[in-house]
């Protein structure tokens, strides 16, 4: 019955694409005072926006594990964000995962759908400061099991921030184009353990796998050449250099809870 009710990843993506037809004039935001915070791909933005990200492609080579060959993981994401007020916004995201193990068949399927809400608590133009909070949910059972989409949901309360250095003294004017954005949150699975039962040789093996809480954090450092040219000092950069924002990003996650993993018979 559950399989009948489960929406397919394809249907979800189609829904995302359908909704986008109503937001043809949506554009990027992230401007606070004279600071433009660009959207970054792996760290969620501190601002709310009317925005369509389609597609976002990430390719990662996973190293050989104890039980798995080296694998190319490709993830193709689509996300629609919509502001409901100046400070409050929601988003809906879908993801197509493709796993290509060395010497094995390629597996493709849709991962769980993500929904999120965000509220901007602080928006200070003079200090080029943004602080927001949000809640993201990985909705269990909406993806496909062949790409290991979880059957349970995971909730991620998060804090986001963005700070430009436009308020440093004039003597340090070449630091003014610098900005940092970041996010920190904790992923809380709604199911502490996943229990798998298998019957073999008239015995029932019960395997309990821990679904840990995971602390997720990341930040980006940005040097805005447009800011330098337009607000600090025109150093003679021509297009397209005068519109570029070099970005360095660091993303990490730390397992924050432990419990009993194990197998019993």
């Amino acid at each position: 019955m559950r399989d009948v009710l489960r929406p397919s990843g394809l249907a979800l993506l189609a829904a995302v694409l359908g909704i986008t037809s109503f937001v043809a004039f949506a554009d990027a935001h992230g401007v606070v005072g004279q600071r433009f915070f660009p959207a970054t791909l792996t760290i969620d933005d501190p601002f709310v926006a009317d925005e369509l990200s389609l597609p976002t492609v990430q390719v990662v080579r996973r190293k050989k594990g104890a039980d798995s060959p080296p694998t190319w993981d490709t993830e193709i994401d689509a996300e629609l964000s919509k502001r409901l007020s100046r400070r409050f916004g929601i988003s809906l995201a879908g993801s197509l995962a493709i796993e290509d193990p060395k010497g094995g068949p390629t597996i493709a399927g849709f991962d769980n759908m993500h929904v999120a809400a965000k509220y901007v608590f602080i928006q200070d133009a003079a200090r080029e400061l943004l602080v927001s909070g949000g809640l993201e949910a990985d909705v269990g059972g909406t993806g496909q099991a062949r790409v290991e989409a979880e059957s349970f949901s995971t909730l991620v309360p998060q804090i986001f921030f963005g700070k430009g250095l436009g308020d440093v003294p004039a003597s340090m004017r070449f630091l003014k184009p610098l900005a940092v954005t970041g996010a920190i949150g904790i992923a809380i699975p709604t199911k502490e353990h996943t229990v798998t039962r298998t019957v073999a040789d008239d015995a029932v093996d019960v395997e309990r796998e821990l679904n840990p809480r995971v602390l997720e954090w990341g930040f980006s450092l940005q040097y805005n050449l447009q800011y330098l040219q337009s607000f600090v000092e025109d150093i003679g950069l021509e297009a397209p250099l005068n519109r570029m924002i070099p970005v360095v990003r660091v993303v990490a996650s730390v397992q924050a809870s432990y419990g009993s993993d194990g197998t019993s018979s």
């Binding site: 990027a28 660009p38 976002t56 080579r61 397209p240 570029m244 970005v247 660091v250």
Partner: peptide
């Protein structure tokens, strides 16, 4: 998240997308 392939692919997209956003 320091995997070279991921960084390379996403950095390329960032460079291509940012001017349009701004």
């Amino acid at each position: 998240g320091s995997d070279a392939a991921a960084v390379a692919s996403t950095m390329l997209l960032v460079v291509l997308w940012l001017p349009g956003s701004a």
